[in-house]
Simulated scan of single mutants.
Amino acid sequence: MTKSLQYDTALAAFVSITEASSFEVSITLTTTGGVVTGRLVSGTKWAELNIELLKEANGDVAGLNQFYDFYLKKLTGEAEEIKTIHSSLDSVKVPDDYREAIASVSRPAYIHLQDARILGPSGLVPSGPAAPWRGRLAEVVGWSLGEIQG
């Protein structure tokens, strides 16, 4: 029996590169819920963008701001921990099955977009300023580089 993939490995590689660096790229995703287009960014940048949106918002958003501050610190700590683990393994002879198990733990589960727009029946939504977007990598069924313009 073959094991079915829960995600696209090429897309996961793009997400991993984005998480480990300042690499960003325009991308269009077909998800189980529809089509979304924007700029692929790291989870850290996604949290920073949400914090900026909250600072610009009117009203009481202190609770949400605390959430994103906490989340940003958590993401930064996890990214550093993963880098440390991988650099430690570079100098150690580890069997391939163990290396694969460690890699699967650090495999991205979510994908983050900046300036995300959703393709609807009347075109791209929102028509004004776009927002940060987060989705499960396993829910992406197709993708292409570049954004839909409209």
Rank of each mutant, 00 (worst) to 15 (best):
M1H: 04
T2V: 14
K3G: 01
S4M: 05
L5V: 01
L5T: 04
Q6P: 02
Q6H: 08
Q6A: 11
D8S: 13
D8G: 06
L11G: 09
A12K: 06
A13E: 13
F14P: 01
S16Q: 06
T18W: 01
E19R: 10
A20K: 15
A20C: 10
S21P: 01
S22W: 00
F23H: 11
F23L: 05
E24W: 02
V25G: 02
V25Y: 02
S26I: 00
I27V: 15
T28I: 07
L29P: 02
L29I: 01
L29R: 03
T30M: 13
T31Y: 08
T31F: 07
G33N: 13
G34Y: 05
V35H: 00
V36Q: 02
R39W: 07
R39Y: 05
L40M: 13
V41H: 00
S42I: 04
S42R: 06
K45G: 00
K45Y: 03
K45R: 14
E48V: 08
E48I: 09
E48H: 07
L54P: 04
K55R: 12
E56L: 14
A57G: 04
A57L: 12
A57P: 06
N58M: 12
G59N: 08
G59T: 08
D60S: 13
G63S: 11
L64A: 10
L64C: 03
Y71V: 00
L72F: 09
L72Y: 06
K73W: 04
K73I: 06
K74N: 15
T76V: 11
E80K: 15
E80N: 13
E81A: 15
E81T: 15
K83M: 12
K83W: 06
T84F: 03
I85P: 13
H86C: 04
S88T: 09
L89F: 13
D90Y: 10
S91F: 12
S91T: 15
S91C: 09
V92H: 12
V92Y: 10
V92E: 15
K93Q: 05
K93Y: 02
P95Q: 08
P95N: 11
D96F: 03
D96G: 10
A101T: 13
A103G: 09
A103E: 14
S104L: 06
V105D: 01
V105C: 00
S106F: 10
R107W: 00
R107P: 00
P108N: 12
A109R: 15
Y110H: 13
Y110M: 14
H112G: 09
L113G: 04
L113D: 03
L113R: 02
D115K: 05
D115W: 00
A116W: 03
R117F: 03
I118T: 07
G120P: 02
G120S: 08
P121N: 11
G123S: 09
G123F: 06
G123I: 09
L124R: 05
S127W: 01
P129M: 13
P129H: 14
A130F: 02
A130V: 01
W133K: 03
W133E: 03
W133G: 02
G135S: 05
G135N: 07
G135I: 06
R136I: 03
R136C: 07
A138E: 15
E139K: 11
V141H: 00
V141C: 08
V141M: 06
W143H: 00
S144T: 14
S144D: 08
E147H: 04
Q149L: 15
